[in-house]
Write a protein that binds this DNA or RNA. Structure first.
Lengths: 252, 252
DNA sequence: TATTGTGAATGCATTCACAGCC
DNA sequence: GGCTGTGAATGCATTCACAATA
């Protein structure tokens, strides 16, 4: 059972990996920090791209220029996967990519339902349909009668009333809510009734759910707002950072 | 020139507000922490909704149940705006809403360009067109000749080649990139050439930009990934949190 | 009693600095 | 000399606990 432990050093985090060597999982230290985990797909993409270009070895600085993240951060993240990379040389692209994909492959397929098949829902449906990854579009719902029976992302659109039943029937893991704000709470309630515990919400409202359900909201207006905060109003204490395009996300 | 200062107390943050009373802006302490600022729109929405329901006074607990955030956090955030709210009573909805909207109103209009008018770009175009807020859709670009001349979100679609010229002509502040991944870097280069310094990127690639440009990437696949990390694999150290629907975002 | 406001504690991510290798 | 790996320092957000107040 991996968890972070307080050990001798001041920063528990630094020792967390070695602290979990004992659990003897397939890979050495599972408890990679969640933020680092979230960046692994980015590294994987960069490495794949480098691999197709025939690059064999990549330094953290090169990875930095491709991903836009600081070399510091990259090394710290990668060090959590173990000691790949050779000092003075860099990381072997193929090996690193292999290890990362091992970590990423949850060897699990996630079954998605899109609720609300307006312009946005439709776009997401096709996006998922096209994109690789372990995500499968398993159902699409809408409450507009005219749309029912049409197809989106290769799946037949069903009536929203049937969400709870179909969610169980098709083993839906994740509901993507792309309805108008008004309807969002109603459909998420149906999804919860269907046993869904992960919700990705694109409508600009806060959804109330039981505490065993995780909601993640992506609000375009909020993204724009967060972005516009970034405008250099008066050259705010501008420390020279070589490439700071990495934006910090607003935490809800 | 607002900035955080180290003062007597151990936590500089706690004193940051009072430390900047001196700057004498229209509102007392401008330097609200960025994360708190990012949550203000959420509070505003909740308060507006309460106001329309005729609620006069709201406690942090009530706000908590509406927004899904912990009461702790809400009080901490709101305390940064000054001492609104009366102890033992709560916050006056109208007053609080007024103050928050004051903080939010940058009294500025942001002019957007959407680059790439496929399904996603089109959806975003209409989303912005419909949604209120200080964001105006000022241009839409696509590189597919067939689409040029069509309209999206009430704006004529122009050829991507014209991005630099139109960006200057129409004073575009923010570029929204919704192209296929291949084309993204190319169009963002054009946007940068047109003097755009804020980019919201929906394509799943890291964009390389000069350091005066801020890019914020929203990647649906990444969101799904981050969400699927949240699945309770083995009831991880589950501390009883009353309502933790608030998801923490993956930081790039 | 109910609720805000806030100093302090905690936790986590980032950044720094440099030891250890090529 | 260049580059990784990592302990420590820093910074910031969250959480806690409780004094102040209606």
């Amino acid at each position: 059972m991996p968890f972070f432990v307080k050990v001798g050093t001041k920063n528990a985090f630094c020792k967390a990996r070695s602290a979990t060597f004992a659990d003897g999982g397939a890979m050495k230290g599972q408890p990679i920090s969640p933020t680092a985990l979230g960046r692994l797909p980015l590294y994987a993409r960069a490495l794949r791209e480098m691999a197709t270009r025939g690059v064999e070895v990549a330094s953290s600085r090169q990875l930095s220029s491709v991903t836009g993240l600081e070399a510091h951060k990259i090394r710290k993240d990668l060090s959590q996967l173990g000691s790949l990379g050779r000092r003075g040389v860099g990381y072997r692209v193929a090996d690193l990519l292999g290890t990362i994909t091992m970590y990423l492959s949850s060897s699990r397929e996630w079954r998605l339902a899109i609720i609300g098949c307006g312009r946005l829902g439709n776009a997401i449906a096709w996006h998922i349909c096209a994109g690789g990854g372990p995500y499968r579009l398993a159902a699409v719902f809408d409450c507009v009668p005219q749309k029912i029976g049409d197809r989106a992302g290769g799946v037949e659109i069903l009536s929203s009333e049937r969400i709870p039943a179909i969610a169980r029937e098709r083993n839906i893991d994740i509901a993507i809510v792309a309805t108008p704000p008004r309807a969002a709470q109603g459909v998420v309630d149906l999804a919860v009734a269907g046993g869904i515990r992960l919700v990705l919400n694109f409508s600009p409202v806060a959804l109330t759910v039981p505490d065993w359900v995780t909601v993640r909201t992506v609000d375009v207006a909020n993204e724009l707002f967060a972005l516009s905060l970034r405008v250099p109003t008066r050259s705010r204490s501008r420390r020279r950072r070589p490439s700071p395009p990495a934006a910090s996300w607003v935490t809800l």
